[in-house]
């Protein structure tokens, strides 16, 4: 129950409307620090929309998204920050961010939330290594003195770049792409592209990694490798993971906490076992609509 005792991200009353369509409706949930949290739900439930709100690609219609980087969440501090017009505050050891007030690139850069995309978004015409180097952009920009020192070939910049290359090698080794470092990303097989996108996101030094259907299109062996990779990311690098997943076996195996969405509304929230046994979830997945049938299904389950 880390998501209750030590949350990293607190989502409250998140609502996202597109014209008349309510994609996410008054959604509240918490992501535990160090947890792998799964966001599941049928097609069109609004999962990707939640991601887009968290990572700043959409500005939520309503709601608060508070992220506490390093250090426990302090409710009072969140309230105080909300009342102020600032988007970030320091309270004790914790750095607090209100994501709904930040543009996308600052969420990645300062609040340290990284993400991948449902339809892979690699820089196809750049090599695998270049893709990872781009993820080091802000670090290298600073080291290159906003380009000026880099243009002059300052040793500090060269050292930082070498360090970035070393880290790229580490991650490429982890995802088994070290020997393809100099190939164009667009030529990698599908599964490798998914892994590369994750490695690229990791190189922005995130505290929260949001993965949009990372196992989609993977074969069973690749799927297992992905599970191992995600566990490494969480255990060795201390990065919390929020992932959208359709494959129930993956969800049940690796997640600590599951949130279920249907038609933009949260219908269940708990440990994998709790959620699996929740009749509302089963109904949603079986496509049962009305109350009567729901009762029927429930009865069957408990029979």
């Amino acid at each position: 129950m880390r998501w209750l005792s030590d949350p990293l991200l607190v989502v409250e009353h998140l609502t996202m409307r597109f014209g008349g369509l309510v994609a996410v409706n008054d959604l509240s949930f918490q992501v535990g620090r160090g947890d792998i949290t799964a966001l599941i739900g049928p097609n069109g439930a609004g999962k990707t929309t939640v991601f887009n709100c968290v990572t700043g690609f959409y500005k939520p219609t309503e709601g608060r998204l508070a992220l506490a980087r390093a250090g426990a969440v302090d409710r009072d501090a969140i309230e105080a920050l909300t009342r102020s017009s600032a988007r970030q505050a320091q309270s004790g050891a914790a750095e607090l961010f209100l994501l709904e007030r930040m543009p996308g690139h600052l969420i990645a850069h300062q609040a340290k939330v990284a993400r991948t995309f449902q339809n892979i978004r690699l820089f196809q015409g750049m090599t695998v290594l270049e893709n990872i180097m781009v993820a080091h952009h802000n670090l290298l920009m600073r080291a290159s003195g906003m380009t000026v020192l880099g243009l002059l070939g300052a040793p500090h910049y060269r050292a930082t770049e070498a360090w970035a290359v070393e880290r790229a090698k580490y991650w490429l080794d982890k995802i088994g792409l070290l020997d393809r470092a100099d190939d164009p990303a667009g030529e990698l097989p599908y599964g490798a592209q998914r892994r590369l996108e994750i490695a690229r996101a990791m190189c922005t030094d995130p505290v929260l990694l949001c993965l949009d259907e990372p196992a989609a299109g993977l074969n069973p062996r690749e799927s297992l490798e992905l599970n191992a990779l995600l566990n490494t990311i969480r255990d060795e690098h201390g990065v919390s993971i929020l992932l959208i997943e359709h494959d129930m076996s993956v969800v049940m195996q690796i997640s600590d906490h599951v949130v279920v969405l249907d038609y933009g509304t949260k219908i269940s929230d708990g440990t994998p076992v709790e959620v699996r046994n929740d009749p509302k979830v089963i109904a949603a997945y079986l496509g049962v609509a009305d109350e009567e049938e729901l009762a029927h299904v429930e009865a069957e389950i408990h029979a």
């Binding site: 990572t55 700043g56 690609f57 996308g104 690139h105 600052l106 990645a108 850069h109 990284a114 993400r115 995309f117 978004r121 690699l122 820089f123 196809q124 015409g125 750049m126 270049e130 180097m133 781009v134 993820a135 080091h136 952009h137 802000n138 290298l140 920009m141 290159s144 380009t147 880099g150 243009l151 690229r200 996101a201 922005t204």
Partner: peptide, 22 residues
């Protein structure tokens, strides 16, 4: 340099660039 790589990355995929903090 990072700025040049960011230009090319921008040409390839602007949304991915933003997700990487550019």
């Amino acid at each position: 340099l990072p700025i040049g790589r960011a230009w090319e990355a921008l040409r390839e995929d602007e949304i991915a660039c933003r997700s990487l903090g550019i």
